[in-house]
């Protein structure tokens, strides 16, 4: 991971390197603002729903951002690989906050209602499954896990992020009425990012050295 951090070619963008901690700090700004505004009753008429949806949307945005890093590097020589782990973990943290908001604020920890939702509501089922998929990815997002698992097995496991991305957009599309544009835009972006990988894997014989997930 770390060895690939600098751009391979001289012609690449010379991106200023910022400390990774800054990615986390900036990444948590929306969450801090949302909770603060929520407590201060600044989130409109339906603050719980606003918070819940905004956290979910940020999780999806960070998920999309992690998927964009490989194509950005391969197509435009923009190398943001050193921030991918932070962005991926932010996606997980936002998904967790989104889930906690649903469990605690939306459903008031009503076990029966939550269980019924998970069993009966496809969008909840898919949302929960998506979160479950993100858990092992988050747990193994550290150097120790890569060493322990071996790079190949680790990369294979982290391909699950593709499934999570599909689950996340399905979850979003299924929760809205009719077909408003925004979820469809996210679905289209995810579709492009995933088909890029599919296309590339079909066109290029994957070399054993190349293990970009």
């Amino acid at each position: 991971m770390a060895g690939r951090a600098s751009a391979p070619g001289a012609k690449g963008f010379a991106l200023p390197q910022v400390p990774k901690i800054l990615v986390y700090i900036i990444g948590f700004v929306p969450a801090v603002w949302l909770f603060y505004a929520g407590i201060m009753d600044q989130l409109g008429a339906d603050p719980m729903r606003y918070l819940e949806q905004a956290l979910g949307l940020w999780a999806l945005r960070f998920l999309v951002a992690t998927l964009a890093i490989t194509p950005l590097r391969q197509l435009f020589n923009i190398n943001l690989l050193r921030y991918r782990r932070a962005i991926g973990l932010l996606a997980f943290y936002y998904a967790a906050l989104h889930l906690i908001t649903y469990l605690v604020l939306d459903q008031g920890l009503d076990g029966a209602a939550i269980a019924a939702d998970i069993v009966k509501r496809p969008y909840i089922t898919i949302g929960m499954a998506t979160f479950v998929i993100l858990v092992p990815l988050a747990v193994t997002s550290n150097n120790a896990a890569i060493r322990r698992m071996g790079g190949q097995a680790w990369a294979k496991l982290h391909k699950l992020v593709y499934v999570a991305a599909i689950g996340a957009v399905l979850h979003y599309i299924l929760v809205v009425k009719s077909w408003p544009l925004e979820p469809l835009i996210y679905a289209a972006i995810v579709a492009v990012l995933l088909s890029y990988r599919l296309f590339r894997s079909l066109v290029k014989k994957p070399s054993p050295r190349r293990r970009t997930a």
Binding site: D41, L43, A45, P47, M48, D110, A113, R121
Partner: peptide
């Protein structure tokens, strides 16, 4: 078909900690 109609949130009631 996609969500329960058994409960509701009353807008303006409880803010972030609205009870169904």
């Amino acid at each position: 078909p996609r969500w329960s109609q058994a409960t509701e949130r009353r807008i303006g009631e409880g803010g972030l900690f609205v009870k169904r």
